[in-house]
Design a binder for these strands. Sequence first.
DNA 1: TATTATACTACTATTTTAGTAGGTTTTCAA
DNA 2: TTGAAAACCTACTAAAATAGTAGTATAATA
Lengths: 145, 145
Amino acid sequence: MMISTRGRYALRMMLDLAEYQGDGYVPLKDVARRQEISKKYLEQIIPILNRAELLQTTRGYQGGYRLTRAPKDYTLGDILRTTEGTLAPVACLEAEQNLCARRADCATLPIWEGLDKVINDYLDSVTLQDVLDQQISRRGDDYVI
Amino acid sequence: MMISTRGRYALRMMLDLAEYQGDGYVPLKDVARRQEISKKYLEQIIPILNRAELLQTTRGYQGGYRLTRAPKDYTLGDILRTTEGTLAPVACLEAEQNLCARRADCATLPIWEGLDKVINDYLDSVTLQDVLDQQISRRGDDYVI
DNA sequence: TATTATACTACTATTTTAGTAGGTTTTCAA
DNA sequence: TTGAAAACCTACTAAAATAGTAGTATAATA
C-alpha cells in the first residue's frame, strides 16, 4: 500500500473544502465532523498543504481554510505528492541516499521508472473538479432509480 | 513506497534463475552471491514463490531452483502480487476487513480503483522475457560506445 | 555416511503509521 | 477588554510493517 491515511485524508479534506467553502472559510471542526476523521489528526496534515500553498487560512473567530485555486487547477498528483512526500513505488526511486551500487546496470530499474510514470501520469490526469463532477452525477443516479 | 524488498528481490531472483538455470537447478547460494542479497533472507522469500508454483526445487547435492514455465509466461504482476500479497495502492482495496462504512458513497474510491488498474495493467504488460531482452540490448550498448 | 543443499521456525532492531494529548497564539465580537 | 472560537505547534505513543539474523531439521546423492 503506497498511499497512507495522510494522503487519503488530505484528498477528502480538499474535496470537502471545494464543496463547502462558498465564499468563506471552512473551520476544520466541520470538515472533521462531515468526513468522520479526527480533527487532531487533520490538524497535522493541514500544515503540509499549507506550506505548499495549496490552501489559505485565517485564524480566530470565523476562521478556517479555503482552497487557493479553483478545483480544476489541482491534480490529485499535486495533493498526494505533497502530503505523501513521494509516490515512488520503490525505495530506489525515492531519494539520493537510497541510490544503490547496482544502479548503473540494474535490469529492474527501468521497470520501476515505468511504473512510477504510469502512477504519476494517472494521478495528474484527474483534477479535484473531475472528482466533484463525478460525485454529483453519482448522487443524481439515486433519483433515477 | 508500495513494493518492498520482498517483491524486488523476488523479481531479481526470478531473473537470475532465468539467466543462469540452463537445464539444471541453481543453488540459492549462487543467486545470493550474484545479486548481493542475504541468502538467509532469500530463503524466506523462496517458499512464497514455491507455494504458488512459480518455481521448482530439488534438495540435496546439486539441488536448487529453476523456473516452472518459460520466462515469457511470467508477468511481473504475477511475481509481485504473489510476493507482496497485494499491490493495492490503498488499504480500502486490500481486504474485506478494511471495508469502510463510507464506501457506498465515497467520492475517492473510483480514483483508487482506477489507480489500482493502471498499476496492475502496467505490471501485467511486462514479462520476465521482456526484461531479459532489454537487459541484453543494454549490455550490447556498451560495445557500441 | 559426509556433504550439499533446501525447509522450517523463532527472534529482533528499526522505521512507519496512525493517531492522542496538551498547551500557545491569533482574531473578532459582544 | 475580555471571552470564545479558531488555527498553530510540539511531544508522545501503541501497533504494525520491514528487513533482516539465527539456528536447527530434513532430504538427496556421491
